[in-house]
Each structure stands twice: as C-alpha cells, then as structure tokens.
C-alpha cells in the first residue's frame, strides 16, 4: 500500500519512541501516508494501523481528530487561510473572500480543474505576518495582500 520510501520515513519516526510505544508514531505515519497519496483513504489508514500494530478505528480516531488530515481527496494544492481574530484584524477574512472570488469556489471546495482546494484554517501561530496561508500543510505564506495572492496563484501550476 505505502511505498518503501514512506515506510522508511515511518521507521525513522518509530525510532523516536520507546520500543513498546510504536503507536506514538501514528500522527507522523498518517502525515507521511497523506503526503505520498494526497489524502488519507481508509485503506491508507488501515495500512498505517497494521504497520504500527494498533486497531484501525484507533488510527481513524486520530486521522479524524486533527485538522490537517484530509479524509477526502483534495486538489493538487490545498490552500488554508487563517481567518482567526488576529488575522481577521489584518485582512485574513478579506483574503479568504478575495480567494473565493478569484477561484470561484467556497471554503472546503475544489476548483473544477481539480487544482486548488480552499480551506478555512485556525490560528497558525503566525499572526504577526497576517494575512497568512498554508500551501499543502507545508509552506507558510506571509502578509498575503492581493498582489502577493495573485503572485502565488500564478506560481501554483
């Protein structure tokens, strides 16, 4: 189910914890699986669960609890905009609206070409750089005023 590379990465995470605590690596393992496959199918979740010797439903509890896991397929790029109060005061909500109108989709929707999924996020601990948004859970973009947003969209191919 998962590639040897992914399993190697997972093994590296397992090594961080006591030998009898493999389950501690489940968050990392799910993240790795999602990075490889774009989202977390139930097959992927079960594969991780079996690899770590935990009940599939226990792994599912984790996958469904934390915000950054996608239990449904998402676009090639997932744009998460922080709209929490500190960002809102500096344009976080406006940035969300701006993106909606530019992409013609609402939050939790994907552009027809399957390229971009727009999501509303909670505080990313970067309020000083508001408006901020996150690309594919990994790349944080700061002070995203209209022209920066335009630049980002142009760059996302």
């Amino acid at each position: 189910m998962l590639t040897p590379e992914s399993l190697k990465k997972i093994d590296r995470e397992i090594a961080k914890y006591p030998a009898d605590q493999k389950q501690s690596a489940v968050m990392a393992a799910l993240a790795i699986a999602q990075e490889e496959q774009g989202w977390l199918s139930s097959e992927a979740i079960e594969c991780v669960a079996n690899y770590l010797g935990m009940a599939p439903i226990a792994a599912y509890e984790v996958a469904s609890f934390y915000n950054m896991y996608d239990l449904k397929p998402v676009g090639k790029y997932k744009l998460t905009v922080c709209t929490n109060l500190p960002c809102m005061l500096s344009g976080g909500v406006d940035a969300g609206e701006y993106l909606k109108s530019k992409l013609g989709v609402g939050f939790n929707e994907t552009t027809p070409d399957g390229k971009i999924t727009l999501k509303e996020g909670e505080c990313m601990g970067a309020c000083g750089d508001a408006p901020v948004m996150l690309v594919n859970n990994r790349r944080m973009c700061s002070t995203m005023l209209p022209e920066q947003i335009d630049k980002l969209l142009a760059e996302l191919e």
Binding site: M27, V62, Y66, M68
Partner: peptide, 19 residues
C-alpha cells in the same frame, strides 16, 4: 497536526502517545 487542544499539557501527552 492541527489541534489547538494539544497545547493543553495532558492532551499533548495523549497526542504524543498516538491518540
């Protein structure tokens, strides 16, 4: 991986335990 509550110290411990 995205849960404010994990800032609470015991939730954080649960989270490290893979829950």
């Amino acid at each position: 991986y995205g849960a404010y509550i994990c800032g609470e110290e015991t939730a954080l411990l649960e989270s490290i335990e893979g829950k």
